[in-house]
Amino acid sequence: MFKTISDTLENKLNGLYYGNRILLPFSCYVLKIIIEDDILMDFSPSSKSIYLNETDSFTEIYFKDFKNLKDTISKYESVKLIAVEKNKDIFQMENHIKLALRVGDNHKLIIEKTDEDILFLE
């Protein structure tokens, strides 16, 4: 079941989180992640802060500096992420999508496109 970022946003689909691991219900290219005030751009296997795994149907991310995202991110905060759809040109800035990931109850990860009130500069 291949889903795109657009499908996820249009259908208001949720992701999942377990401890320090999040699961996004789409496959994508991840360019930049901000969690609290850590700006993460090194997604190489040697990164000490993050582990990223892309499969055909989902993307999973481990935040190694945190034990449990629920304890770290308040209900008003989010993990921010810049991603590009798998079938789109990564070098076209207009294809860069800014997402806010909010931790909800029962392991739900709420995925929203950031509105203009939320500060998020690339």
Binding site: K32, I34, D37, I39, K80, L119, F120, L121, E122
Partner: peptide, 11 residues
């Protein structure tokens, strides 16, 4: 202020 700026994506 540093933290808010970094949360906004400013290095």
């Amino acid at each position: 202020v540093k933290s808010i700026s970094e949360r906004a994506g400013i290095t």
